[in-house]
Write a protein that binds this DNA or RNA. Structure first.
Lengths: 217, 217
DNA sequence: ATCCAGGCTACACAGGCGTATAGTCAATTG
DNA sequence: CAATTGACTATACGCCTGTGTAGCCTGGAT
């Protein structure tokens, strides 16, 4: 996605401010990021930020919109079949989201970026629609629910990347780290953590007892 | 976990402040939460917060420590085999983390709460150690790496819960929503999203091309 | 040449925040 | 009883923030 080239309107001060904002929001979070800091990173005055975006909140929304545009581009690429069997969708998504990973993580947890998440869910849903026929058994739950949960799981290593890196003991920003993570995900995705018999057992148990949290003395 | 009864030192103003802080940090995030707001929720003056915890950062660390204590309790419960085959570890974890879910989500993304994540990774690692013998093939990557990534995936529906709920179209705080999520996770966990042949293919492809991100001008 | 819209800056302002200080009151201790 | 400790409050301080305003400078249109 990155090498698709900048938008025609890029290279302008407005674009530099937006990029700096995404870096700052991603690194420090929305609250700790300051307009002055963003302006300094963009090489402009703080007043210009206001001049172009009006307010800090509007600047955030502009960043969200830009991120969504990138996601949509990725979406279209996948739809057009340009990379259908070259990469798996997980690796594709992670690679495409790379530069915006930290921003996306903060935005998602802050409750923002709903459109991004929904867009990814749609992607996952299509993927399930394509691959469900290969399943031996019929799915227990609807496709949209599975797509939603799966999207969250696919985003988890992006959102919690620092923790995963620490726990793994590698730097995920190095080629070795990326390779290890990719191989790990492939192993996890290709092996069920629960046997179908166990899962059925648990599912049955769920249906019986009321699913509220069990009270403990 | 809530009905396990408060610590002996609870019910004190100090405990009330800590609980209120966890609610506020969880709901608004660390930055947007204010000492004055926490104090008001706890029914005390803002000065008392400082008296007991010294600073906002120290208050956050106290919350982290309290959360870790709860996690450790859960850890011990699992280790002692009290709920080994009653619930699956995912459901257990989610249920136990319930009241602290939002706090945990913010803390994890902010980079804090490393100890919590590592504790959960340890849990997952033990779980893999128990269940690896049932695998038909030998794991491609080390147990710790898989445990780390799996922990992130298991936490994803907690961290991104609002998005999952919206995409699913249900309220996850209702029994119906909990049930649907549980059944969805059981379905996902009991079905690989990739065939072993596909995974092997992707893994082989990973080894060939250098996994670095393409540079951007 | 004139004008002027818009990118851009410098500076000022008000509010909210964490923090600090001084002091009150009740319980404990000698 | 006197003294000390610690929980607790009220109030003030100083900083940083987002925001507002006034003005400068450049480039293109008339």
């Amino acid at each position: 996605m990155s090498p698709t080239g900048p938008d025609p309107e890029d290279l302008t001060a407005r674009a530099r401010i937006r990029d700096a904002a995404m870096r700052h929001f991603g690194e420090y979070g929305y609250e700790r990021a300051t307009i002055r800091g963003i302006a300094e990173s963009a090489g402009v005055s703080s007043g210009l930020v206001r001049h172009h975006f009006g307010s800090k909140q509007a600047l955030r929304e502009a960043c969200d919109a830009h991120l969504i545009k990138q996601i949509r581009r990725l979406n279209d690429d996948v739809r057009s079949g340009r990379m259908l069997h070259q990469d798996n969708p997980i690796a594709t998504t992670n690679a495409a989201l790379g530069p915006y990973r930290r921003y996306l993580a903060h935005a998602l947890v802050a409750g923002s970026a709903e459109a991004v998440f929904d867009q990814l869910v749609e992607l996952a849903e299509e993927w399930f629609a394509e691959n469900d026929p290969r399943r031996p058994d019929a799915p227990q739950v609807g496709r949209r629910a599975r797509a939603a949960a799966f999207t969250a799981m696919a985003l988890s290593t992006a959102v919690l990347r620092d923790h995963v890196a620490r726990a793994m003991g590698v730097d995920l920003d190095t080629p070795e780290g990326e390779l290890l993570l990719a191989r790990t995900l492939l192993d996890l995705y290709s092996h069920p953590v629960l046997g179908t018999d166990e899962a059925a057992e648990y599912t049955a148990a769920l249906g019986k007892l009321p699913p509220g949290r069990p009270a403990r003395p």
